[in-house]
Design a protein around this nucleic acid. Sequence first.
DNA 1: CTGCATCCATAACGATACTG
DNA 2: CAGTATCGTTATGGATGCAG
Lengths: 128, 128
Amino acid sequence: MPVIVDGKMKFYADSEPRRLMELFSVKWTTMVIHALYHWPGGKCRTGELQRSLDGISKKMLVQSLREVERRGLVQRHVFSVVPPKVEYQLTELGRVFAEPIELMYQWGLENKAALDAMEAACQQNQGL
Amino acid sequence: MPVIVDGKMKFYADSEPRRLMELFSVKWTTMVIHALYHWPGGKCRTGELQRSLDGISKKMLVQSLREVERRGLVQRHVFSVVPPKVEYQLTELGRVFAEPIELMYQWGLENKAALDAMEAACQQNQGL
DNA sequence: CTGCATCCATAACGATACTG
DNA sequence: CAGTATCGTTATGGATGCAG
């Protein structure tokens, strides 16, 4: 799987897998995609989304939404009414990227034991 | 899949999936695990590892290694010789967590088209 | 060779207050 | 309701030099 150069293995930070991982490196983006993926009807309003994402600030919500919109993963629908109404939904490309995210969510749910073991080791080695 | 509270969906930042994702949020940790996972024999020295991870600084290498060691994913073997010799290898728990990481690497390699599409959209929407 | 310490720049994040 | 702006804190990461 890894690239071999002069008989030595090489791993690159700008490889495809790493480009994918960068999506995960920002705290809320995956949760936004995950939430939209599971939203009944696939569309939801700003406020609803914020209330569903426990602990997210308005700033990070909007910032995350702009981010995924810029990347072409989410589409924004603005209704010209008062009070304002805006709906968000995954694009086709967004649903493609929901796939690995759902894989991770699945794995996480099925491997709580491993996650707990890691946390336990973590606390045990505080003074390392 | 999501939790339902009062008929509304709720997504928590401290859920199992998110705890897994936190492993991914630090730039080099996944690459270190990925590299060790594919290393012939499963053990490798500090310098070898650094040379294989393109662009990593010494500081981040050591920091990442201490991180995964603290989490119980990697074991450190110190040889009492001069010049110093240290080897790293994945623990059993580490090999468990290599699984989702390899899944992501696999997905990334198989979906270069989607990644390129995202990048293209990204650049097109610069002035958004 | 391995590891640590230091300095510094930037990015991520949260809280709050304000506009239409 | 949706979105913006500002401030301050913390985390992240790179460069460099030193020590065993």
